[in-house]
Amino acid sequence: MTTPHQWRISESNAKLIGYRCPKCSWVSFPEKKRACKRCGSAPVEMMGFVMKPFGKIVSFVVQHRLPEGFETPLPLAIIEFEEGARAAGHIIDCKLEELHVGFEVEAEYRIMYEENGLTMYSYKFKPRRSH
């Protein structure tokens, strides 16, 4: 059964919703902030919109030692979306030697973990290919 916590995060897990500052156009992701981190406007009513699933790697690490339940080696990266927002995410469908800063990726809906008998889904990032 969906728990209150799962319900609260369901929309942000299903869609890549960014929040744009009406004053300076800075994009917050995934939280809707009440103050703009770039221009400092506060309080500010940020406008939600669905971002394109494309971005590039700004920084990454490869995890080799993790608890049970994780596939290793697991590349984790900071992604900068085309809209400018940044997020941390898993890198998938990729050879480790392909990874580099500036590597273009696209978001893909995947299984994240299981909680309360439900499979939880959200976005991971794979190399941007033409398909």
Partner: peptide
């Protein structure tokens, strides 16, 4: 399929295409 793929995730990709 990868360990983190199932009928839903693959179906979503096909639907996007």
């Amino acid at each position: 399929a990868e360990f983190d793929e199932d009928a839903l995730t693959m179906g979503i990709q096909a639907a996007h295409h």
